[in-house]
Nucleic acid binder design. Structure first.
Lengths: 205, 205
DNA sequence: ACTATTGTTTACTCACGAGTAGATTGCCTT
DNA sequence: AAGGCAATCTACTCGTGAGTAAACAATAGT
């Protein structure tokens, strides 16, 4: 084993460093995409923000399309993970749905989640677009399943599953558009209040 | 007065024809924007779809930015009009809010409304963007006022007005993303059901 | 008939940004 | 020592698409 402070890197350290750089590129890219929009962001801009040059980005990622695809894939994976976690968790259907929705809203206020919300599938090339849409469909399906489980166990009022899914998705995606990460409002709070509001409806009981 | 079938046009007819052509350009443009996205649509494409050439578009509209701005302005005007109409209508606060929301959702499934939903403000240049955002803020404000009136007259449960506004806007903008105009589902039905669902919440009563 | 105005075209310019070629440096292996 | 691989740069190419110049046609007004 090498001394911890050796200036020479082990293979693991090297590949880890490589992965870290790759991720740094994605982080920088996604932040600029969210701020200015995908088409208003050149890879030269992204490179400059990291103090590197464009070819370096191409060293880590194939092309601009792939950069975007990776960003949204990360966001969607977080959502998918949230769905799976809720699936495994205890509680009745309504409780598990609410847990999922809360996490869902939070992810949509994070860098990669926001990118998912703000990216229209048209921005991607045909192959990437297909992957993107397939992933989104997976999330939709997961949400619907959670809803149906809730209806089945009686903890949710019976409704049109698809429509409820769309309504919830819309309401909880929207923060990805309006929420300002530099603002005072905390994502966790927004998520919780929003979900509570949706759960209750707005007519008086 | 000239004979009705004269091949010579009166000044009114000329300016009307001009306006009609302008609108035809906007219609063609907005449809392509919605389908392929703004950046994936060149003005050459739009022109071709009308069987004309690009400079003709420039004869009616200043530049691409302005084309988009006009499109979203039309959409937003429809929303604003809906708000004003609801303001003037009879009924308690909740009823007027619901009427507005229903119309709001419908507009968002129409060509120009969809364009509003699908267009990120980053796509526009600075001046146009400011106008766009100002208009959107107006809609937001109108919605919040409707909510507050409902709370004031007791027909709505008291809540965080801003948050409810965002939740409703999100849920009712979303159809502009997923609804397929060529699909079987009718916008009017979707709008009504969606609003009813939001009004009631999804927890059992 | 003559001129101005409106509508429309063809045929350009020009900038920007994605993507690449090839050189360079330095570490790592044999 | 030598060759190879990883990481990075400078300096390009090249397509696309916004926007324009200039000509042409048709209609309207004088």
């Amino acid at each position: 084993m090498a001394p911890a402070d050796s200036p020479f890197q082990s293979p693991q350290q090297r590949s880890k460093a490589r992965a870290a750089k790759r991720e740094a590129v994605l982080r920088a890219a996604v932040q600029m995409f969210n701020e200015r929009g995908f088409h208003q962001t050149s890879l030269d801009d992204v490179a400059a923000s990291l103090g590197i040059s464009k070819p370096t980005i191409y060293h880590y990622l194939g092309n601009k399309d792939q950069v975007l695809l990776e960003c949204v894939t990360i966001g969607l994976s977080q959502l998918l993970e949230a769905a799976e976690e809720s699936r495994r968790s205890a509680g009745n259907g309504a409780q598990r749905l609410i847990a999922f929705l809360t996490r869902y809203a939070q992810v949509n206020m994070d860098d990669f989640g926001r990118c998912v919300v703000r990216t229209g599938s048209e921005a991607l090339g045909p192959e990437s677009r297909a992957q993107f849409q397939a992933l989104k469909r997976k999330i939709d399906t997961a949400m619907r399943e959670l809803i149906e489980e809730g209806v089945a166990d009686g903890s949710l009022a019976p409704t049109d599953t698809k429509l409820l899914g769309f309504a919830l998705a819309g309401a909880l995606n929207w923060p990805g558009r309006w929420h300002d990460p530099k603002g005072a409002l905390q994502p966790a709070q927004i998520a919780e209040q929003l979900v509570a509001m949706l759960a209750q409806g707005f007519l008086p009981r």
